[in-house]
Design a protein around this nucleic acid. Structure first.
Lengths: 133, 133
DNA sequence: CTGTATCCACCAGGATACTG
DNA sequence: CAGTATCCTGGTGGATACAG
């Protein structure tokens, strides 16, 4: 983090065949979307799949998330254009969050990833037990 | 982290349709595979796609990773059964890392995710510029 | 070359209290 | 209800030195 000023590069170039890699063709995956290093983005994306949801409701759908972190994560996703925020000027205030079109396209990969986790959990846990023992 | 003892649950249950969620059917995605919150796992997985690679070579393929972090990440992946480590008792020592069968199955989702990032980077950056301005 | 141990900075993220 | 501000801790991860 300190070493890489504004370029937290991780070599995830699709054309990275093996060894060499041209310095230009790298992708700032983590920078582009912090999901990789961020604790809550995936959960939020996932929870938003259902459609427009209110803030408080999201809190309930994402066990363990704090008030503060939900706000921050939503802001970040909004900034990236993955989530849209519409606030209805009522009293008490009502705000709804929703995946944008862009955000929806991300649901697929996220889902694939999550599904994989579900499918292989037993294997992984077995492997861990083996490794630790 | 402090709130959730050993159960860093994130509600990524595939059957989470919208609101309710049975407490049993959740997945410990982050716990099962730290990729979500871990800075380097994805990069390493990706770099290992090419086949068996030596430690030093990985260092070169993953810009910015530190000696220490590469070791730790590899250990973690090995523990999870995603990476195999074979050391050849030579001098100087030679060690090769390789994706296991299980690890290979993960390449797909990872790749999908990365591809998405590449494809939509411009949109995201545009969105950010808009948001910040 | 590969790996471990130590030290330390930084920041993600939790708890809490307070506004509109 | 939604959001912000402040404070504070734990852990991630970098730098370095050392060992086999």
């Amino acid at each position: 983090m300190t070493a890489l000023p504004a370029d937290d590069v991780i070599s995830l170039d699709p054309n990275l065949s093996a060894r060499c890699q041209e310095p230009g063709s790298r992708a700032l995956v983590r920078d582009v979307f912090s999901m990789t290093s961020d604790k809550w983005s995936m959960s939020v994306i996932r929870a938003l799949n259902a459609g427009p949801v209110r803030f408080t409701h999201l809190m309930g759908d994402i066990p363990g998330i704090s008030h503060r972190m939900l706000t921050r994560t939503l802001r970040a996703l909004e900034r990236d254009g993955l989530v849209s925020r519409t606030s209805y000027p009522e009293s008490p205030p009502r705000v709804e969050y929703e995946l944008t079109t862009l955000g929806t396209t991300l649901s697929e990969p996220v889902r694939a990833f999550i599904d994989w986790t579900h499918q292989h959990r037993p294997e992984i846990e077995a492997s861990r037990a083996r490794f630790d023992g």
